[in-house]
Structure formats: C-alpha cells, structure tokens
Simulated scan of single mutants.
Amino acid sequence: MNKTVLKTKELLDLFLDCERLTLPEMVERLRMPKTSVYRMAQSLVALGFLQKRGDHYELGLALLTFGSLVAERLDIRRVALPVMERLKEATNEAVNLVIRDGDEALYIEKVETSEPVRVYTKVGRRAPLYAGACPRALLAFMDEKEQARYLERAKLVKIAKNTVTDKQALRRQLEEDRERGYTVSYSELENYSAAVAVPILNHEGAAVAGLSVAGPEQRFLPDDVARIVPLLRQAAMEISRELGFQGKGWK
C-alpha cells in the first residue's frame, strides 16, 4: 500500500478524537518529522479536507460533502430495493436505479426481469448523462444553470444507433422530458433496447437519482409506455417520500 496515503489517513484519524489540533500536537501524536506533517496538512487544507483557523487545524467541509453523498447513496439503495422489486413484479421488466457521479450516471441497483429476452445492464455500469432514459432523467431534471454548464462542456459521442449527438436536439429533448415528467429512450445506449425513467427527489426537491424500467424495444410500444409510466411514477414517489420529499413531484 502507498505509504503517503497511509500516513495521510493516520493524520485525518487524529481528528476522530480531537476537534482541533496544532501542528506540534499532530507531530507529537504521529511521531513524524515536522516538515512531513506540515506538508501533508497544507495539502489537505488546499484540497478542503482540513481547514486552518489561527494555529489550529480542523476537519474541512470537503469531508462533509463526501460523507453526505455516501449516506444519501446508501439510503437510496436501501429504501429503493423493495420498491424496485414490487415494480418489477408489476411490469415484468428490469428495474434500474442510477445516481450521478460527475458527468456520468452510475448504476447502483438493479432488479432483473424473469423474461428470457432482456437488456444487459449491471450494477457498477457507467453511462453518459445524455444517453439512455435513466441517465437522461438526471440531466433533464437537473438545476437549469448546472444543466447549461454541462451541455457547454459535454462531448456527445454516438454509442448506439439512436444516441443523440446534436446539442440542439438534446436541448429540445430535455425540455420535452422535463415538461412531461419522464424520459423515454430507444436504442440510445444499446441497440434494440428501450427504457422509461423518472427522477427520484430528495427533501429539497432535487433529482438525486433516476429510476427506470427497461427491456427490448418490442416490449415498449406506446401502449406499454402508457401502462408503465404511472407505475414508475408511483414507485419513484414512494422512494422520494422516504428521502424526505414533501412536494407533489413532476406532473
């Protein structure tokens, strides 16, 4: 294991028992050269993992961000899984749960269909936010300013035959998705696959996850989508309520 990383972890561990520490106090507890401890501490300050107030160091806000994300993601999986299992029984299709990780969607939970013909996805899979119903649910219901910044920097790469690679077309699609309150995709991430997705909202009303029902295109005709959407919305709202959402949701 990398010794520098281990020493840095030892330094951060000091703050499990101590709210504030001076440089001499850290040196004494770590039994390391003062210059080494100083360099590590200053690097952690620069990264936001520590902050310095006068002669004392304390934990920084970056750790709060990471801690909140971990807690939120674990809560979503725990809360969502039984709801996803019921949704799978109601639709007889695969159900996926994604969260945002930077400019990508990360699949963190899946309930597989019992149908012999199915769409390939797995926990841990990543996809760009612009492609596929479930990732695009995160993008469509993102804060509008943040969405605009993403669209400015994103490079749209063709993944399957219907992947949207034109930014103006994508903007129109996102407006339509947001207006109707759900997303639909056909052959955007994988040829001959289809999905319908809705956002999951947290206590602040922000879209923190996407929930989708997915399967082969031939099982997602307009009548199928019309049948799935109310079930999907109900499931997403149930999860959102468990996360503290009190509003009426999208549509």
Rank of each mutant, 00 (worst) to 15 (best):
Q168R: 15
R171L: 08
T163W: 11
D177L: 06
E176N: 07
A160W: 10
D177V: 02
L156Q: 01
T183D: 06
T183I: 01
Y182F: 01
V157L: 10
K158T: 09
K167I: 06
E179K: 15
T183A: 09
A160R: 09
K161T: 14
V184L: 08
S185C: 12
A160M: 11
Q173T: 12
V157N: 13
E179Y: 14
R171I: 12
K161N: 02
V164Q: 12
Q168K: 12
L174A: 01
G181S: 07
K167A: 07
I159V: 01
E176A: 14
G181Y: 02
A160F: 02
G181R: 13
G181M: 02
D177S: 04
E176H: 04
E176Y: 07
R178F: 13
D166C: 09
A169S: 12
R171E: 13
A169M: 08
Y182P: 04
K158G: 11
D166Q: 08
E175M: 08
R171H: 08
A160E: 06
R172T: 14
T183W: 04
T163P: 12
R171A: 13
K158P: 14
L156E: 01
N162S: 14
V164M: 13
K158E: 13
T183P: 03
E175H: 05
Q168T: 14
R171G: 09
V164D: 07
Y182W: 00
V157S: 11
T165Y: 00
L156K: 01
R178E: 11
T165P: 05
A169F: 06
T165I: 01
